[in-house]
Structures are given as structure tokens and as C-alpha cells.
């Protein structure tokens, strides 16, 4: 590992015609962490990942992996594994041959092909033509290709696409395992709920710019922290009583009152003291999805 950071993006800008896909984006990713790369369609995630592996040339700024531009790496597949497009495979070729070709190009021993096939659970399907694969199987094959060189850095663009719930769970545990081995994983996804269970840190982008880069817990705190939700038969009355006693009532919808903070005992006590029956009482963390929407709504950059 020639750099403290696995991934360094510094004031990266890329324009396609009149469209500024990435606009002065900067962030880093450390080894041993899973970093979620989050943003809506057209936010510049894929363009950034492509710049990191040298598929596109930035107009300005730099995109380094392991401390240098991708094209200067002496062992690219052994340094970075990337899944930028799960469909990038010839439908007429078997999965095993797809991997064998990549191994040959990268100077990787053929036995490693068998290891990664087993590792991603492709098994006997490896000898079938890729054209007959489901999207989930293609994702697994693409992941196998990324792991071929046993890289310390992984970049995965929407790796959960097409995976069934079992596959998503497998992916989550797989990526966590890779990070536990000291690898850096940069993963973009639209499935924010899934990412929340997968990542240590989030890089939120919108309109090609950085919105925020924070550890997940810090991100949740940043967007408002925990809330207490209490479901009762008389929500309006309870909301008024809570407000009288200085609680920050955030909303009242249906039979549920939402209160800022995490003092569920105090909220429950107010209901009990006024003989209001409690159907449900729980403390909630803001979801990554909520955090994302709160951060990106009307605030293009808070960097």
C-alpha cells in the first residue's frame, strides 16, 4: 500500500459536451472500510469511478488509487478490482472463459479463476454461456472478475442490482468480510437501506459535487439524531401534553406522535401520568435514506 488513502479524488471535474458530470469533487477512502458512494442518477458517481480506473480523462483535478493514477499501476488487477458494468461480458462466452481471458491479460495464474468462481458461488453455472445468466449471476461473475487479482481496493457500481434478497445478504457479508481483511471498498447503490447495513462511511454527491463525507453514525447525527415514536389512541392530546412539558414534538401522523431525542422513558411517563394507553413505543435512528434526502434537499454542497 503506497498511500495512506486507497482512493483519493481531488477537485475532479469532467464535462461531456455541455453537461458537467463531475464538478470539483473531492473525497477519500481509507483501507479497511466500506464507503458508500451515494447520489441520484446523474450525480456523477459512475463518471468518478470511471475516472478512477482511467476509462475517462478528467478535465481537471485528479483521481488516484493506491496513491497514483490507475494507468501508472504496475499490477492493476492486483491493486484494484472494479465492477463498473455487470453486463460487460460477451453473451456467447462461458463465465469461466470470461475469467480465464481476464486472468491471462493480467498475468494471473489460472487456478485463481477456480478460487473466485467458488468464492462468489457461481459453481457449475461457470461453464454456461453468459447470455443465459440472470442479472444476479452476471453480478456474481463481474464480482469474481473484480476479485481475480486479490486486490486491496474494490470499486463496485450498483453491485446489488439484480440480486435477490439472499444474494444481497450474501453481498453485504462478503463486502464486510473484505473490509475486515483490510481492503477498501467503494460501493455505489440506489438501495440506500441496503447500503446502511453495508457501509462504514458515506460519500454523498449531487450534481457532480460533494454534499458530505461522514461516517454513517455521524451522518445520522448530522441530520437530526434519534426520534421517539409513540402510538396511542389520543395522539393529538398526547402531542399537546408533551409540548407543554417541553418535549420537541416533530409531528403527529395517524396514531403516532414523533418526538425529537431518545428519552423514551420520559415520553412514556407523560402518557402513563395522563392515563393514555400506549400501543407502541420505540426509538428510531434516522435511516440513511432520510439522511440522504435531508442532506440533498435544497442544499447542493455543505462541504
Amino acid at each position: 500500500m503506497s498511500s495512506a488513502y486507497a482512493i483519493e479524488v481531488d477537485t475532479l471535474t469532467k464535462t461531456f459536451g455541455r453537461l458537467k458530470a463531475v464538478d470539483g469533487l473531492s473525497f477519500t477512502a481509507e483501507y479497511g472500510r466500506v464507503v458508500g458512494f451515494i447520489g441520484p442518477n446523474g450525480a456523477g458517481k459512475t463518471t468518478t469511478m470511471r475516472a478512477l480506473v482511467g476509462h475517462i480523462r478528467p478535465d481537471t483535478g485528479r483521481a488516484h488509487v493506491a496513491g497514483r493514477p490507475y494507468r501508472e499501476l504496475t499490477d492493476p488487477l492486483g491493486t484494484v478490482g472494479a465492477v463498473l458494468e455487470a453486463g460487460a461480458m460477451h453473451p456467447g462466452r462461458s463465465g469461466r472463459n470470461h475469467l480465464r481471458i481476464l486472468a491471462r491479460q493480467g498475468g494471473i495464474p489460472a487456478r485463481r479463476v477456480e478460487e473466485v468462481i467458488d468464492g462468489v458461488g457461481l459453481g457449475r453455472a461457470a461453464d454456461r454461456r453468459v447470455g443465459g445468466y440472470s442479472l444476479g449471476m452476471r453480478q456474481r461473475l463481474a464480482l469474481a472478475a473484480a476479485l481475480l487479482g486479490d486486490p486491496a481496493i474494490l470499486m463496485l457500481d450498483e453491485p446489488a442490482n439484480g440480486l435477490d434478497p439472499e444474494g444481497i445478504r450474501w453481498l453485504r457479508e462478503f463486502l464486510r468480510g473484505l473490509a475486515a481483511e483490510g481492503r477498501s471498498v467503494l460501493v455505489s447503490s440506489h438501495g440506500l437501506a441496503e447500503l446502511a447495513l453495508m457501509v462504514d462511511e458515506a460519500v454523498v454527491v449531487a450534481h457532480g459535487r460533494l454534499v458530505v463525507q461522514q461516517p454513517l453514525a455521524e451522518l445520522r447525527r448530522l441530520v437530526g439524531g434519534r426520534t421517539v415514536r409513540i402510538s396511542v389512541p389520543e395522539p393529538d392530546r398526547l402531542a399537546a401534553l408533551l409540548a407543554e412539558r417541553g418535549h420537541r414534538v416533530l409531528g403527529c401522523a395517524g396514531d403516532t406522535v414523533t418526538v425529537g431525542g431518545d428519552d423514551a422513558r420520559a415520553v412514556g411517563r407523560v402518557a402513563f401520568d395522563h392515563d393514555i394507553g400506549v400501543d407502541r413505543l420505540l426509538v428510531e435512528e434516522p435511516s440513511l435514506e432520510e439522511a440522504y434526502f435531508r442532506l440533498t434537499a435544497g442544499k447542493e454542497s455543505i462541504r
Binding site: V53, Y70, R71, E72, P76, A82, L84, G87, A88, L102
Partner: peptide, 11 residues
């Protein structure tokens, strides 16, 4: 886009 895989192996 399979050429992208070639460029990943040999930049």
C-alpha cells in the same frame, strides 16, 4: 464495453 475490462487489466 468488454474493452473496459481489457483496459482494467492493462491500462
Amino acid at each position: 464495453r468488454t474493452v473496459g475490462l481489457d483496459y482494467l487489466a492493462v491500462p
